[in-house]
Design a protein around this nucleic acid. Structure first.
Length: 575
RNA sequence: GUCCCCGUAGCUCAGCUGGACAGAGCAUCGGUUUCCUAAACCGAAGGUCGGCAGUUCGAAUCUGCCCGGGGACACCA
């Protein structure tokens, strides 16, 4: 598609006298029935002090069609461009099939490194449904960046340190370590919920929890031992869910990993004269004279001498910079932490680290339950593992009903069930808050993961039915893929790579998800019309037509498989 | 109080680096299975793009104010 756009720009540039850059800025993608591209002539008309329709007519008259451009016509104030669709069909199908799983890949990230911090759950709590967001958005971003040539480093920054642990150790002091010895992660969580409830009733317990964390930080052996066992227990449970989701990391480093680096961070800030005492604590002021808003100081050391997560994030940022030399660092963390990352970046900049500008908070909306934010502390959670179980079970039911012959039904149900949950999270823009609505997460009709996977399975089914290897693309076959249904597929396949690039630019996996839905819609409509008219089937009588259509279906299959993979989903060949 | 995000059909959303008539899915109603998987397709109905100004040849898209919802604002992460 890029070659087609470039050529369009070149021809319009020559005809209009505008620079290629100017044409490229103005050129829009037209709706299919109007052509392929359109050039609105309002801006050039203004410069020439002539009416837009006149300018459009002049440009259209001067422009020469040819090559990849079939037709250039004026329509009111617009110049419409129609591409050589036979050529577009052929080049697109050939490019997609040649690329295979690498369709959509690009090289603009070559030589650059991105560190992606995602999932990063707190230890001693189970993975709840809302953890899906950071986990799957981050997982997808890693795949997307890698596809566009970046070297990627996926980091799981476990919350295994902090006052939360003090609370847990306090709980053990109060009620014993039963859940730990019993290897019972849910019991551990119940204890965490209970201790938070107790603290809410009796605020003096808060201080005792802080004291426990201080003991941990000071290296107290009892505290250390309990802590280690809690972390191990949680990690085993996390890994189980990550395996089911197909999520992996390059570096799993808890906040505790930075424990011995924290004094260095504090010393650095002190050495640069940035630390100030405030109400017994040490802070760095990060407001600037030209600020239009208030940016409160960043708290580095608490009044009892213990550190905070800002301290650890500073240590982590410096560590990642030194270790991975990143050109970009993403933090896939909910939108509520915007201020924290703003402060973090400002502290680093004040400390003379210009690379901090490469840090990007990639925010996402929170999960709402009954209109209010889901909180693990109050125990008001839906476990992620339970949702996955439920989804897989429902899919098994659907398979029994619709495809009882399916050989590896259990495996397929796992893939489709998990895919349904994953896709429900990735299909919308990150920033939207999401209401917990299991019915829509577990529905398999309409714009869902199973719908996309089903499209892929149907494409595979047609190719399987054909049996033999695909014949060569027929001479002049592009012209056989010329009707509206086929052209819609060609366009969707052709535009896939630019959507992937855009997903990376905007850190937005939903760019890919919505594009796949568009493609699926076109594919199902194309597929269904064969029910009415055998001549419109892919596997039709005419061998030449059949060959051209098979190539197109294979290009669709390649695109769906590549897209699903970028979203971190499986693409079963049957379901 | 200050700041951030969101506000498009009954519900969930797409469209938002401004461009030709605002699109889907779910739900509702009506069709399609001797036919490449009906997890599908086709059709009907459904919208003051939260409101008011402004910028512009042109605004769902940009700016300001207001309203509504969510969130952040130091010793939690």
């Amino acid at each position: 598609m890029k070659a087609f756009r470039d050529e369009t720009v070149e021809r319009l540039s020559r005809a209009s006298g505008l620079s290629p850059e100017a044409v490229d800025r103005l050129l829009v993608v037209a709706e299919a029935d109007r052509g392929d591209f359109a050039l609105p002539c309002f801006v050039p008309a203004k410069e020439r002090k002539a009416p837009p329709p006149k300018v459009a007519a002049e440009i259209a008259a001067k422009a020469e069609a040819g090559g990849r451009v079939a037709q250039i016509t004026a329509a009111g104030p617009y110049v419409n461009v129609r591409l050589d669709r036979a050529r577009l069909a052929q080049e697109t199908v050939e490019a997609a099939r040649a690329a295979g799983p690498a369709w959509g890949h690009g090289s603009e990230g070559a030589g650059k490194t991105v560190v992606v911090d995602y999932s990063s759950p707190n230890v001693a709590k189970p993975l709840a449904f809302h953890h899906l967001r950071s986990t799957m958005i981050g997982n997808s971003l890693v795949r997307l960046y890698r596809a566009r040539g970046w070297r990627t480093v996926g980091v799981n920054h476990l919350g295994d340190w902090g006052t939360g642990f003090g609370k847990l150790l306090l709980a053990v002091e109060l009620w014993g370590h039963g859940p730990i010895t019993a290897q019972d992660p849910r019991g551990l969580n119940a204890m965490y919920v209970r201790v938070n409830a107790e603290i809410a009733k009796d605020p003096t317990l808060e201080d005792r929890a802080r004291a426990w964390f201080k003991r941990l930080e000071d290296g107290d052996e009892v505290a250390r031992d309990l802590w280690r066992r809690c972390v191990d227990l949680s990690m085993r449970e996390f890994q189980d869910v990550y395996d089911r989701l197909g999520v992996t990391f390059d570096h799993v480093t808890g906040e505790s990993f930075y424990e011995d680096r924290m004094p260095g961070v504090v010393a650095e800030l002190k050495g640069k004269g940035l630390l100030e005492e405030s109400e017994g604590a040490l802070v760095v002021r990060v407001d600037r004279p030209d600020d239009e808003k208030e940016v409160p100081p960043c708290l580095i050391v608490k009044s009892d001498g213990a550190t905070l997560y800002a301290t650890r994030d500073l240590a982590a940022a410096e560590y990642r910079r030194v270790t991975f030399h990143f050109d970009r660092a993403l933090y896939v963390v909910d939108v509520g932490q915007g201020l924290h990352f703003e402060q973090l970046k400002r502290v680093l900049l004040r400390a003379g680290h210009p690379w901090a500008d490469a840090m990007r908070h990639v925010p996402f909306g929170v999960l709402l339950i009954g209109g209010t934010r889901a909180k693990t502390r109050t125990g008001q959670v839906v476990l992620l593992a339970d949702v996955l179980d439920e989804a897989v079970e429902r899919v098994e039911g659907v398979i029994r009903e619709k495809n009882p012959e399916l050989a590896d039904a259990a495996e397929v149900a796992k893939a489709v069930g998990v895919g349904a949950v994953v896709f429900s999270d990735l299909k919308n823009r990150r920033i939207n808050d999401i209401q917990l609505d299991l019915e829509s997460v577990l529905s398999f009709e309409g714009k869902t993961g199973p719908y996309v996977m089903y499209s892929h399975a149907r494409a595979c089914s047609i190719l399987r039915k054909h049996g033999a290897a695909l014949p060569a693309f027929p001479q002049g076959g592009g012209a056989l893929l010329s009707d509206a249904g086929e052209q819609a597929l060609v366009r969707a396949v052709a535009r896939f790579p630019e959507r992937v690039a855009r997903a990376v630019e905007t850190d937005e996996p939903s760019e890919v998800a919505t594009h796949l839905l568009d493609l699926c819609e076109a594919f199902h409509a194309y597929h269904a019309r064969g029910s009415r008219d055998p001549a419109l089937r892919v596997l039709t009588e005419d061998a030449t037509v059949r060959a051209a259509r098979l190539h197109l279906v294979d290009a669709v299959r390649v695109t769906l498989a590549a897209g699903l993979s970028l979203l971190g989903m499986a693409a079963p060949e049957q379901m």
